[in-house]
Nucleic acid binder design. Structure first.
Length: 422
RNA sequence: GUGGGAGUAGCUCAACUGGUUAGAGCGUCGGGUUGUGGCCCCGGAGGCUGUGGGUUCAAGUCCCAUCUCUCACCCCA
C-alpha cells in the first residue's frame, strides 16, 4: 500500500463536506444572532503557552501534545485546544483595551496525541466561544445557551446539560483540604487510578466510573457545601438565567473538568449514543487565565463543541446539489456555441455543468444522471442547423423545444420556475 | 501508554479441519439502442489476501513482528 494518512488523522471526503458546511453554517448563524465576532488564530503556538495555560500537570500537556523543535530552536506545539491561543491573541493585540466585553468564536482543528477511538481523533475539530471581560453570571449562561442553541438548531435530541461550580480561590482551599482528608481515609476502597488522582488532581476522583469508588465517595465533601456566598450567588443566577430562557439542565455536583484553568461555572452537554466519549460540548469559567498568561486580570468564560462527535449525532446525510442543468454539447461547434451560456446561467445562480470530453449523447446523459441534474440541454448538429434546442427533464424524460436565439432566457425561466415550486 | 476484536476487488462480504486457477453482490467499463440516462439482459476489467519474516510438500487460512482500523481503559471535545 502506498502512503496513507497519519494515524488518527482523517480526510473529509466530498460526500461528507456538505454535512460539515451545515454544522458550520448553523453555528455561524447562531453566533451572528448573539453578536459574536470571529477570531482565527494560528494552529501552531509556542509550547510554553499551553504548558502555562492548560496546566503542567495535565495529561494533555504531559503526554498528548504534538511538540517539536523549530529550526531556530523554539519549541512549538500544534494547539491541543483553542482557548490558550485566543487569549494569547487577546493579550498580544490588547483587545482588552478596546473597552467592553470581548465576545469571540472560532472553529478549526485541534491536535492531541491520544489513542484513537470512537469520537476521538488525533486531529479533531472544535467550535469555540470565548467571552472575555465579564464577571456576570449572564455571560456564563449565555455561553451555555450558545452551545445548547447550536445543537438545538441542528435538531439533535436526547441531550443533557450538566452544570456545576468549582468555586473560586476563596472557597476552594477549604474544600480541597477536607476532600484530601476524606480520600485518605477511604483510600483502601478506591481503585488504583483514583489513588493516583487523589494526589495529582483530587477533584477528578469524582469522574471515576468504578462503582466501588462511587460508593466510597457517597459521603465525600462536595464543593456546593463550601461555596462562598459570591460563588453560590453566581451559580444560582446563572442557573436562573438558563431557566429564564427555558433551557433544561441538571446540577451535577460531581461534575469536574480536566483543564486546570476552570473556576466557578463548569458544564458539559452529554449525549447518548456516542460510546465512551459522551461529551459533545463542554466549557466553563476561567477567571485567572488571562492574568496567568501575562495579561491584565480579566475574567473569561468559554465553551467548545466537538465537531466530529456532533457529526456522529447527526444521522442524516446532507446531499449536495451538483447540477440544475447539464449541457450536452455534441461536436466542436456546439461546444463553442455553448460555453458563453455557462457564464450567463451560472451568473444567474444556477448550477450548470457540461462534459469536458467530446462524448456521445448517451454518455453525456449518463453523466448528467449521475450528477442528478434536473435538466439536460441537448445541443447537436441537428439542433444548430434547425436553430431549435431540446431541453430534457430528467425526472420523466419529457422534452421541450427551445429556440436557439432565446435559449438562455427560456432556460432561466424554466429552471427558476422549478425552484419556486419546491 | 494498556487491553480486546479486525485487516481479502473501489465498497460490503464469502473461501469447511492448511490443498489445485481466491468468489459473490453492489459499483465501474463496454454491448443490446451508430443522437437519448435510470429499469432489464449480456459481457469485460479489476487482487503481490495490510506489510515483513517464519512453520510446511503446500499458507488468505497456522506462528512471530510491525502498521492501520475498531472498541474499551486512561483522558478529553
Amino acid at each position: 500500500m502506498s502512503i496513507k494518512a497519519v494515524r488518527g488523522f482523517k480526510d473529509i471526503l466530498p460526500e461528507e463536506s456538505a454535512k460539515w458546511h451545515l454544522v458550520e453554517e448553523v453555528a455561524r448563524e447562531v453566533f451572528r444572532g448573539f453578536g459574536l465576532s470571529e477570531i482565527r488564530t494560528p494552529i501552531l503556538e509556542k509550547t510554553e503557552l499551553f504548558a502555562r495555560g492548560i496546566g503542567e500537570q495535565t495529561d494533555i500537556v504531559e503526554k498528548e501534545m504534538y511538540t517539536f523543535e523549530d529550526r531556530n530552536g523554539d519549541m512549538l506545539t500544534l494547539r491541543p485546544e483553542a482557548t490558550a491561543g485566543i487569549i494569547r491573541a487577546y493579550i498580544e493585540h490588547k483587545l482588552h483595551g478596546r473597552g467592553g466585553v470581548c465576545r469571540l468564536f472560532t472553529m478549526g482543528p485541534m491536535f492531541r496525541h491520544e489513542r484513537p477511538q470512537k469520537g476521538r481523533l488525533r486531529q479533531f475539530h472544535q467550535i469555540n466561544v470565548e467571552i472575555l471581560g465579564s464577571h456576570s453570571p449572564l455571560a456564563d449562561a449565555e455561553v451555555m445557551w450558545l452551545a445548547w442553541q447550536v445543537l438545538q438548531d441542528l435538531g439533535i435530541e436526547g441531550l443533557r446539560l450538566e452544570v456545576n461550580s468549582l468555586g473560586c480561590p476563596q472557597c476552594r482551599p477549604a474544600h480541597r483540604q477536607d476532600l484530601l482528608t476524606f480520600l485518605e481515609n477511604v483510600s483502601g476502597e478506591l481503585c488504583p487510578d483514583c489513588n493516583r488522582r487523589r494526589k495529582r488532581n483530587p477533584l477528578r476522583v469524582f469522574d471515576c466510573k468504578n462503582q466501588g469508588c462511587r460508593d466510597a465517595l457517597r459521603l465525600a465533601p462536595l464543593i456546593k457545601h463550601y461555596m462562598c456566598p459570591d460563588c453560590a450567588g453566581h451559580l444560582g443566577q446563572a442557573l436562573d438565567f438558563l431557566e429564564g430562557v427555558g433551557i433544561p439542565f441538571v446540577w451535577n455536583p460531581y461534575l469536574v473538568r480536566g483543564l486546570d484553568y476552570y473556576t466557578r461555572t463548569t458544564f458539559e452537554i452529554v449525549a447518548s449514543g456516542l460510546g465512551a466519549q459522551s461529551t459533545v460540548a463542554a466549557g466553563g469559567r476561567y477567571d485567572g487565565l488571562v492574568k496567568e498568561l501575562g495579561g491584565p486580570d480579566v475574567p473569561g468564560v468559554g465553551m467548545a463543541i466537538g465537531v466530529e462527535r456532533l457529526m456522529l449525532l447527526l444521522e442524516d446525510e446532507v446531499e449536495q446539489e451538483l447540477a440544475d442543468l447539464f449541457i450536452a454539447a455534441l461536436g466542436r461547434d456546439a461546444r463553442e456555441e455553448v460555453v458563453p451560456w455557462l457564464k450567463e446561467l451560472r451568473a444567474g445562480g444556477f448550477i450548470v455543468q457540461m462534459s469536458y470530453e467530446d462524448k456521445g449523447l448517451k454518455a453525456q446523459l449518463k453523466q448528467a444522471d449521475r450528477l442528478r441534474s434536473r435538466y439536460v440541454l441537448i445541443v447537436g448538429e441537428d439542433e444548430l442547423d434547425e436553430e431549435v434546442l431540446k431541453l430534457r427533464r430528467m425526472a420523466d424524460g419529457a422534452q421541450e423545444e427551445i429556440p436557439l436565439d432565446e435559449a438562455v432566457q427560456r432556460i432561466s425561466e424554466i429552471l427558476g420556475k422549478e425552484s419556486e415550486d419546491e
